[in-house]
Computed example of a mutant assay.
Amino acid sequence: MASSFVVGDTFRKKVTWLLDNTNSCLPQTLKEELEELLKKSQPTILSFSTARKLKKYLQDKGHLHSLHEFLEDSFLHLPQVVKPPRNPELVARLEKIKANLANEEYNRMTRNVNTQETLADFGQQVRSVKAAVVTVFNFLVTVVAAFACSYIGSQYLFTETTARVISAVIAASVVGLAELYVLVRTMEGELGEP
């Protein structure tokens, strides 16, 4: 926090003029402080307490110039903030806390993931896909076999190929529909629907 001004040439000139023209009226402490300031080399630092004394003197005596005119080319002196070195124990403790928080975050994110359950779920899904593939393959084999049997068996009834193909398609369609009915009823039973 600022507690002083860095004064410029305007301040030096006006204070020199003030000291030369009002030697007898200036309070002794203020006069000594101002003379001490003028002896210092650049940058000259004026404390707030001295600035207050000078302002009070200028106001009380009804002087031509006010303090802001003295400080025209001055600016606040902001001391450099020196950060103390960090305590190594504190740094180590903070690193440990950060590691614990990261571990808790990781555990929270992966709490639903269990490798044993994942592998079991994967195995169950493979079995489910395998059952579906076997069911579709079984359906196709049954329909093709029904068509082949009807086509070959119909040669004793029909002499024309067209009639044999139509009868085989009808027989395969009936077997396919029956197979689909059984498949749907089985799936309803697996899903728990009556």
Rank of each mutant, 00 (worst) to 15 (best):
V129R: 02
E179R: 07
N23K: 02
S66Y: 05
P85M: 01
E193I: 10
G153T: 04
L101M: 08
K13I: 14
V184H: 13
S167L: 11
T115Q: 09
R86Y: 00
P79I: 07
L54R: 05
S66V: 09
Q125E: 10
V165N: 01
A171F: 08
Q125T: 04
S4I: 08
I97T: 13
L191R: 12
K55N: 13
V113N: 00
L64Q: 02
V184I: 13
Y151S: 05
S154Y: 03
A120G: 05
K40P: 01
Y57L: 12
R93M: 02
A120T: 11
F158S: 08
V133W: 04
L119P: 00
G189R: 14
S49I: 14
L38A: 12
Y106W: 08
N87K: 03
R127N: 11
T186N: 11
L64H: 07
F137P: 00
W17P: 02
A92Y: 08
N23P: 07
S24Q: 09
V144D: 07
F137S: 01
V126E: 06
L58K: 05
K98T: 10
K39N: 09
S24V: 12
T44P: 02
P79F: 12
L38R: 06
K13W: 14
N112C: 02
I170W: 05
T186C: 07
L37H: 00
D20F: 14
E105V: 11
R93K: 06
V91S: 06
G189T: 03
Q125S: 14
V15H: 03
K130Y: 08
G192Y: 15
S173W: 07
Y156G: 08
K130D: 12
I170S: 03
K83M: 13
L140K: 05
V113T: 06
R185S: 01
K83Q: 09
V15D: 01
A92D: 05
A131L: 15
L78W: 15
S128W: 07
P88V: 14
